[in-house]
Structure formats: C-alpha cells, structure tokens
C-alpha cells in the first residue's frame, strides 16, 4: 500500500520538501488554506497558474504542484496579465510578499486593479524584507524595528487594502494566519471572482521580524498578530485600520461586479469592428 503523506499531497511537490521557509513562518498556513480552497472548489489543478516574484513568498510556485512561473522581483502581476490574456480559461494567481507587491511592483498593483484584470493577487504581509535579512518595507508599521531602520521606520506604512480599493480592485479582503478557515473561504471567493481580486494576509516572520522586535518564539509573534487582527463586517475599505499598537482590521471590504479587463478589451474591439462595418 502506498503511503499517503497528506490528504492534499497531490497539490504539493513533496520532492521539494522541506521548504526554505523558517520554522514558525506563516506562509505555509497560507499555502495550506489555498490548496484546501482549490480542493473544495474542485477546480482542475491543470487550470491554475501561479506566478511569483522574489522574496520568501516568491518560493510558492516551487512547492505547489501547479503550472508556475518564478519571475523578476515586482513583475509577477504583468506576467500574470499576459498569461491571462493569452489563456483566458486559466485561473491566474499572483503570490508575493509586501516588498514584491507594494514596493518594487507597486505600480503594477494599482494598474492591474484599475484595469480590473481578471487575476487574483495574494500578498503575504510580514512587515519586512525577510529573504534579504530584514530591511524596512513599505508596510513596516510605526513602532516596529528592522535592520535598516534600527530606531523605527522613517515613513508611514502603506495600507494595502486602501490602495487596492482606491485603485479599483473589485474584490479586496485582509486576513491573517490566525484565521486559516476564513482565509480559505476568502480564497474560494477570490478564485471565483470576475475581475481583480486582492487578498492581503497578515503573517508572522518569527526569524527576522520577530527576533528584532523582541519576540522570543514564533508563538509570541503569532499571538500578537492574533490580538491586533480584528475582524469587522459591513465596513468599507477606508474605515479599516492598519495600526501595530491598536488594530489591523481584517475582513472582506470590497466585493462588486464590474466588467473585467478582457471584457472591456473585447467590447472595444467589437464596437470598433461594428462601426467599421457601418462605414463600409
């Protein structure tokens, strides 16, 4: 009898185990929530493509058994849009860290949202550049430390929920690794959503962010994330909070139906062709 390592083993590249993620890292929780969502939705795994940039989170396509591309730092979103336009039948998922998605790739995020490009962007927010050893990120909250901001960040952090919503994303949610079931449900919605869906996940980076901020073990940092993550229902994206000392608001803040990028493109082509026929 063949031994089954895990009920969801078919979605995992077991030959790539162990992962490079540190013990206690939150990214594994996200990966598991995602493959559970895919499994429950009964999506054909051959219809999913995962695109990532650089960073700890960027390792995702190495470990999940879907078609995948590990591309340049910040450029996962435009690559994903290219894939989606070439093969509209596929579900295209971008998975990246806060540095990848909000810093070097920030411009791509707002433009993909503006276009309502039919892709899902998952952003692991661990407040720091983890892979390169702990530099200040665009999400680093006030009153926390990094190795390039040893006395605290010099600027206020980005609130990704507000940015995505303001840029026109049609599905926006924020969860944390403390709520893997709610995260899984949110993944299911995003995967079925028409248009641009954006999910931010507040996650623990115990080795880098945790250590410099005085958390002696992953559990302590996890508890902090659990405590500040407040789920609020029925509020809009601009009523949410992103505050390390008080509250990082979790929940689903935008879910609306608008024409996707591909539909808008097709519509313009159709109208142009029809008007051309009239003139002829």
């Amino acid at each position: 009898m063949e031994l089954e390592l895990h009920p969801l083993e078919k979605y995992i590249r077991t030959e790539k185990m162990p992962t490079t993620w540190c013990p206690g890292c939150g990214i594994g929780t996200e990966a598991q929530a995602f493959i559970r969502a895919v499994d429950e939705l009964k999506i054909d795994p051959k219809k999913i493509v995962i695109v990532s940039g650089i960073g700890c989170t960027g390792r995702m396509p190495h470990y999940l058994r879907f078609d995948g591309a590990h591309v340049l730092h910040g450029r996962a979103i435009p690559v994903a849009i290219g894939i989606k336009l070439a093969r509209p039948d596929l579900k295209v998922v971008v998975w990246g860290g806060d540095g990848d998605i909000l810093s070097i790739g920030g411009n791509h995020l707002i433009h993909a949202a503006r276009r309502n490009a039919d892709i899902t962007v998952i952003m692991n927010n661990n407040f720091i550049y983890g892979l390169t050893g702990g530099q200040v990120a665009p999400t680093t909250p006030k009153d926390t430390l990094t190795y390039t901001s040893p006395y605290g960040p010099d600027s206020k952090p980005f609130d990704a929920v507000k940015i995505a919503a303001a840029a026109g994303a049609t599905y926006v949610a924020r969860w944390s690794t403390a709520y893997p079931v709610l995260l899984k449900e949110s993944f299911k919605k995003a995967l079925q959503h028409r248009g641009f869906s954006f999910i931010e996940i507040i996650s623990q980076c115990p080795e880098i962010f945790g250590r410099i901020n005085g958390f002696k073990d992953p559990y302590g940092l996890y508890q902090k994330i659990r405590k500040i993550g407040q789920i609020r229902r029925g509020i809009g994206p601009f009523e949410t909070k992103y505050d390390w000392n008080e509250e990082i608001t979790l929940g689903e803040f935008v879910n609306k139906d608008e024409p996707t990028y591909l539909e808008q493109l097709s519509q313009i082509i159709k109208e142009a062709q029809e008007s051309g026929q009239d003139e002829a």
Binding site: H73, G99, S103, I104, Y129, L131, T132, G133, Q135, Y147, T148, S149, P150, Y151
Partner: peptide, 18 residues
C-alpha cells in the same frame, strides 16, 4: 534597495547613520 548579496553594505551604512 535590498538585494542579495549586496544588502549588508547598506545595512551597515544605516547602522552608521543611526
């Protein structure tokens, strides 16, 4: 901007500045 294997140059500089 952080990039391996440069990053510790600017980490050290930020320490000097701090």
């Amino acid at each position: 901007y952080p990039i391996t294997p440069q990053t510790t140059v600017v980490e050290k500089l930020s320490e000097f500045i701090a």
